[in-house]
Structures are given as C-alpha cells and as structure tokens.
C-alpha cells in the first residue's frame, strides 16, 4: 500500500465542515418546502373562514337565493351537491368494489389485467372538463336525460371510479393471505371466502375510500357544469331528472358572472366556506380513520 496516498484518506476537517453546512442548508430547504405546503393550506382556509364566517347564518343555510342571487341563502346548492355526490357514489361504489375484487382476488396476471389497469390509470388521468364533455354528449344529449341529477351523478360516478377501485384494492391487499387460506382450507369456495372473510376485514378501508370519493365528487365543478348543475333554480329537486344548483358551481357563478360581483363577496366566501367545511371535514374523518387502521395493522 503506497504510503503517500494513504494520507489522502485522512480526516479532512475542512471538507467535513463543508458537508455538514451543506446538510444543514439543504435540510432547512426540505423543511421549508414542507412548511410552505402547510402554510398554503392554512392561508386558504384562514381567508375563507375569516371572510365567510359572518355570512353563515341559519337563514343562509336554509333559504334559497333571492333578488337575483344577491341575497338569501344556498339551500338548493347544498341539497344539489348532496344529491349529485351521493348519486355518484351509489353508481361508482358497486362497480368500483367489484372491479377491485376481480383484479385483486380473481384475476391472474396477464394481458387482460394489464389492459384493465391501463384503462383505470388513464381514466384517472382524464381531465375533469373532458368528463363534462362526455357527460354532455352521452348522458344529456344521446340518452336524452337533459341537464339533470341523473346525468351529473353518472358523469361524477364515472370520474370517481378510479378512486374507489384504488382504495378498495388497497383495502383488499391489506387482508392477510392466511385468512383466505384458512377459509379455503375449510372447503369454502372463493366467492364464499370473499363474502364472509375478505370483504368484512376490508370494509373499513373500502368505506374510507368511499368517503374520499364523495368528497372529491362534491368539490368538482367542471364535470357538472354541462350535465347537472344550473345557474339558478329556486326549486328543490323532486326527481332525479330535475336540474339542480351545486355549491362549487354557485361559487364560480357568483364570483365571475353575477351582476354585482363585489356586492355578493360575502355570499361567495360563505359558500366557499361551507364547501370547504364539507369536503375537508369528510377528508379529515377519512384520513384519521385510515391512519388508525394502518397503525392497527402494524
């Protein structure tokens, strides 16, 4: 071993100091990035709450808009959003759960599964406004549903499908194989095993997925603009073929197309706050629930 080269490997305090300073600097940056995200969330929520707080009254939540939407409340929007998002989930949940069961329990890896997964991934990537176009051309025009809860919910349901499938698959994967083997070993068929053993253990995970799906659907605007939601209707829906108002679309309309945008600011903030409370509330429940499930599985 040449001795003079050995010295190159000796402790180099200057280098060591440099790399430590570098580490502190970069860790500061990394932490900063995380903080920026948190701040962004807090700022948005803060402004909506501070400005929207005063608009929230009992009347605001229980009355229809009045005087060309410069006064009154948002009851039809709340009801409409409720109908659209629950309609969407009622459509997407059975299809999504069944798809996930096929992919996770029945399918053997191969071209078909690859194709289905490619389909799901790409469906998840389709822009929301394209879903709107699709819903308009197919449900509203061709199937003659008109602008209605049915057309809007179907469009939103198609959009929620990948979310539900993803969440269900994750839940199914977390069920230990030993459960399946135990059931199959007792002479149960595959379907019996799925129905009595796998689905019950996966149910909490599936339900969190469903909650996330509803909240996503409730916040979407572009897919319902042409298919389910309208500018203004004071009536509450009585059939699934009625058109409705919706919270997100109402915010958009008031903020951009109202006759007196500045004067209705407080209504805009108030509506935004209701929507945020609805969506983040559902998400928080789902996130906390999921975290608890994961901890329990560890």
């Amino acid at each position: 071993m040449p001795v003079d080269e050995e010295s190159l490997l000796e402790f180099n305090p200057a280098y060591d100091k440099r790399r430590k300073i570098k580490q502190s600097f970069f860790f500061f940056l990394f932490r900063g990035a995380a903080v920026v995200n948190g701040i962004a969330l807090l700022i948005i929520v803060y402004f909506m709450v501070v400005n929207g707080w005063r608009a929230i009254t009992w009347e605001f939540l229980t009355q229809p808009p009045m005087e060309s939407m410069t006064k009154g409340g948002i009851l039809p929007c709340i009801v409409g959003t409720f109908c659209l998002s629950f309609g969407a989930i009622i459509i997407a949940l059975p299809i999504g759960i069944s798809s996930a069961i096929y992919l996770n329990e029945y399918a053997r890896p191969g071209k078909m599964v690859r194709l289905i997964r490619l389909g799901i991934n790409n469906l998840a990537g389709v822009p929301s406004v394209v879903f709107g176009l699709f819903g308009l051309a197919f449900f509203v025009v061709i199937l003659k549903m008109g602008v209605s809860i049915a057309a809007g919910a179907l469009t939103l349901g198609a959009m929620s499908l990948p979310v539900i499938i993803g969440a269900t698959e994750e839940a199914l994967k977390s069920v230990p194989d030993t459960y399946r083997e135990a059931s199959l070993g007792l002479g149960a068929t595959k379907w019996q095993t799925i129905w009595w053993v796998v689905l019950p253990s996966a149910m909490p995970g599936i339900l969190t997925g469903a909650i996330l799906g509803i909240s996503r659907a409730a916040g979407e605007t572009a897919p319902i603009m042409f298919t389910g939601a309208v500018f203004f209707t004071p009536k509450l829906p009585t059939s699934i073929f009625n058109e409705v108002m919706a919270l997100p679309y109402h915010i958009y309309v008031l903020a951009t197309a109202g006759t007196e945008i500045e004067k209705t600011r407080h209504l805009q903030y108030g509506t935004a706050m209701v929507l945020i409370a609805l969506v983040l509330g559902m998400n928080l429940v789902a996130i906390l629930w999921r975290a608890r499930l994961r901890n329990r599985l560890k």
Binding site: E5, L8, L9
Partner: peptide, 16 residues
C-alpha cells in the same frame, strides 16, 4: 465511500 468522504482524485480512487 471515498466520494462521500470528499476524495475526488480520480487516479487515487481508481487505485483504491
């Protein structure tokens, strides 16, 4: 291991 400890001399690294 040499790189992360600040050794950049290529010939030395190769020998090592």
């Amino acid at each position: 291991g040499l790189w992360v400890n600040g050794i950049k001399d290529k010939a030395f690294v190769r020998d090592c």
